[in-house]
Simulated assay, not measured.
Amino acid sequence: MEITFLGTGVAIPQKNRVQSGVLVRLEEKPLLIDCGSGVLNRFPDAGVSHTEVDTVLLSHLHLDHVADLHPLIKANWLRGNTSMKIYGPEGTEEWFSKVIDAYEYLQEEVDVDIIELVPGKEFTPEEFDCEISCTAATHSVPTLAYRVTGEDGEFVYSADTEPSRDVMDLAAEADLLIHECSFPSGMKVTNHTTPSSLADILEEYNNEIGSICLTHFYPEMRGHEREAVHRLKEYFEGEVIIAEDLMKLEL
């Protein structure tokens, strides 16, 4: 299982970080998790054709996680691929329909299947040899954290969230936890995570998770990356990784 971080940033532009997107290659087939602005243009740099992607998991519907989804569908259509399956939280179908209704020419040309999920759902996407489960994250809109289990390992993607026992329970016994870390320690934030707030809950799960990869960085995190790693290592024995755009991890 190969994990490529197409985007590790947020809605505010930053050098070398576009918005959220993670590409997971399970054997030969790619699964895309979130598709924020800039993610589509990362495909050539990642050495992956966008036309390979026909299945997307959306964590939630904030623009920095979905803005390139319709452009991806159009790009695939222009190259002859018209089918897409999208999994997401409550409200995904209504949101998708409202946007694509503005582009009648595209609506008539593509076949998009949307499956809305509820926390606790377990499923296997068609043509994938993996199991996926989800739980509710703690954010300002309905948000799902995902656990992907394949032959080579399993990981959890927290999505945007405050530190959450539901998310940490989902990550128990996983090889890798990809967790947002939007702001540095010392900032008072809601709906997001800092190294200190994650460390407070991580101590309870120290021996249950293999490694942690931090992502979803606001500009305020620049220069605080080593500090974040040091803070978490006080409570966590595994490796702590700072995600960068186009970084690859193998499970």
Results as ranks from 00 to 15, higher is better:
84 M>F: 13
85 K>A: 13
85 K>W: 07
85 K>E: 15
86 I>C: 04
86 I>P: 01
86 I>F: 02
87 Y>C: 09
87 Y>D: 07
89 P>N: 12
90 E>L: 07
90 E>N: 08
92 T>K: 14
92 T>M: 12
93 E>Y: 14
94 E>W: 12
94 E>S: 14
95 W>T: 06
96 F>V: 07
97 S>H: 12
98 K>I: 08
98 K>G: 03
99 V>F: 07
101 D>A: 15
102 A>V: 14
102 A>D: 12
103 Y>E: 15
104 E>Q: 07
104 E>I: 10
105 Y>M: 11
105 Y>L: 11
107 Q>V: 11
107 Q>E: 14
109 E>R: 12
109 E>W: 01
109 E>C: 09
110 V>D: 10
110 V>C: 09
111 D>F: 03
111 D>H: 08
112 V>K: 06
112 V>P: 06
113 D>F: 12
113 D>H: 14
114 I>Q: 08
114 I>R: 09
115 I>S: 06
115 I>N: 04
116 E>N: 07
117 L>F: 05
117 L>N: 03
118 V>W: 10
119 P>F: 11
119 P>H: 10
120 G>E: 08
120 G>F: 11
121 K>I: 07
122 E>V: 15
124 T>P: 00
126 E>M: 10
128 F>M: 05
128 F>G: 02
131 E>R: 10
131 E>V: 14
135 T>C: 15
136 A>G: 03
137 A>L: 02
138 T>V: 08
138 T>Y: 07
139 H>L: 00
140 S>C: 09
141 V>T: 11
141 V>K: 08
141 V>I: 15
142 P>Y: 12
143 T>S: 12
143 T>I: 00
143 T>P: 00
145 A>M: 06
145 A>R: 05
150 G>C: 10
156 V>F: 02
157 Y>W: 11
158 S>V: 02
158 S>A: 15
159 A>T: 13
159 A>C: 13
162 E>S: 10
162 E>M: 08
162 E>C: 04
165 R>S: 04
167 V>E: 02
167 V>L: 09
168 M>E: 03
168 M>R: 03
168 M>T: 01
169 D>F: 08
169 D>V: 11
169 D>K: 15
172 A>T: 11
172 A>Y: 05
173 E>V: 02
174 A>D: 02
175 D>Q: 10
176 L>K: 04
181 C>T: 10
182 S>G: 13
184 P>Q: 04
185 S>Q: 11
186 G>M: 01
186 G>S: 07
187 M>H: 09
188 K>L: 00
188 K>H: 07
189 V>Y: 01
190 T>W: 01
191 N>H: 14
192 H>S: 15
193 T>F: 00
194 T>H: 06
194 T>D: 04
195 P>Y: 06
195 P>Q: 06
196 S>I: 06
197 S>R: 11
198 L>K: 04
200 D>Q: 04
200 D>E: 13
202 L>W: 03
203 E>H: 05
203 E>W: 01
204 E>G: 01
207 N>A: 06
207 N>R: 12
208 E>P: 00
208 E>A: 14
209 I>S: 01
